[in-house]
Design a protein around this nucleic acid. Structure first.
Lengths: 111, 111
DNA sequence: TATCTATATTGACAGTTGTCAATGTTTGCT
DNA sequence: AGCAAACATTGACAACTGTCAATATAGATA
C-alpha cells in the first residue's frame, strides 16, 4: 500500500509533549533574547529594562514574557508598579532533561 | 511616552538566530519523536521504519526529516531504494552550545 | 522498456504565532 | 478622587507551519 491508512489528525499545540512545549518557548529569537537578558540579570530585571533592549513594542514584550512564564522558564514578582522577572529555579535542569530525553542513549557500552 | 517609536517589523523565520533556528526544529512533538528514534538507532534507521513508528503519512514524515536535516541535526545516506538517517556528528554539542549561549553566566563567582 | 518500491516534492488548507494598536488594570502620588 | 506610570490583555492581521493528497523521482528487477 502507498501510505498506511491512518486517521486524519491535527497535531497542534494542545498535545505538545513536555519537551516540545519547552522548545517551543525557545524557538523565537526575540524571546530567546529576553530569556538571555533575564538569565544574566543578577538576579532579576524589570520589564522597563527589557523593553529598552529589544526592538518591540511593550505589549509584544509582555506577550513573550508570558510565554516564557507559562513554560516555567521564568518567574515574576511585582514591586510597586514594576514587575521583576527572574530565571525560574529549575529552568536549566528542565531544559537539560528535555534534551536528555531525546538524546538519551539506551545502548550498553560494549565490554 | 507610551511605547517607543519603532519601525514596523515582522520577525519571521528569515532572521532566526542560530539558537532559535535549532530550537524551532525541536519544537514539534512528532519531529521530536522522529529525532529520538534516529538518536537511539544503532547507528541509523531507514525511513520505512520511521514511518511505522508515527501516526503520520509518509510525505509528512519526509517533511519533518527534511527540517531535522536542514537544522543540521541529522544526516542521511541512500543505499539502494532506502534512505538511512542518523544523528549528525555534532548534533548534541550543537544544541548544548545553543543552550549555553542562553544560560551562560557572565558573573564572577565571588572568591 | 515497463513496472514496482521507497522516498521526496508540490500544492492546498486550516490552525498557530508574532506583531502592533487600543484598551484595561494596578500602583503611587497629589 | 484624579491622574500618571508600568505593565497586562484583547483584537486583528499577515506570515508561518503541520498535515494530507497528488505527483515526481530514483533505484531495482523483470
Amino acid at each position: 500500500m502507498r501510505t498506511k491508512s491512518k486517521p486524519a489528525q491535527q497535531a497542534r499545540s494542545s498535545d505538545l509533549t513536555g519537551a516540545a512545549k519547552l522548545f517551543r518557548a525557545l524557538c523565537d529569537p526575540q524571546r530567546l533574547r529576553l530569556l538571555t537578558l533575564i538569565s544574566r540579570a543578577k538576579p532579576e530585571i524589570c520589564v522597563c529594562d527589557l523593553n529598552d533592549e529589544v526592538s518591540l513594542v511593550q505589549p509584544t514584550v509582555s506577550h513573550h514574557l508570558r510565554v516564557l512564564k507559562d513554560a516555567g522558564l521564568v518567574t515574576r514578582e511585582r514591586r510597586a508598579t514594576w514587575m521583576y522577572y527572574r530565571l525560574a529555579d529549575g529552568a536549566k535542569p528542565k531544559v537539560r532533561a528535555a534534551l536528555a530525553s531525546i538524546f538519551a542513549r539506551n545502548d550498553k557500552a560494549k565490554g
